[in-house]
Amino acid sequence: MKFIAREGRDRGDVKLYALSTCVWCGKVKKLLADLGVKHEFIDVDELSGKQQTAIREQLDAIDPDWRFPCVVIDGGRRCICGYKEKDIREALGL
């Protein structure tokens, strides 16, 4: 399972679970890039079925109502689903 790393300001462990085909996911990718925050992202639809299941189980444990795009901060301290610019900025203290 390969997350793609993006360098930037360290605001904790920031992971974005996304789909390659989803515009809202694209907007969150762009937002994180524009904010210049260090993060990792993964396009879950590009993974094999087994890897997708593993990711689904991870997310289920963090937030049973998760959906894409899903930003997980510090292993689940915060979990923001959907393109919610204000919440993402606020969670990152930006």
């Binding site: 789909l19 515009v23 809202w24 997708q52």
Partner: peptide
């Protein structure tokens, strides 16, 4: 749907 994870 592009914004949901399809089962295939």
């Amino acid at each position: 749907c592009p914004c949901r994870l399809a089962a295939g």
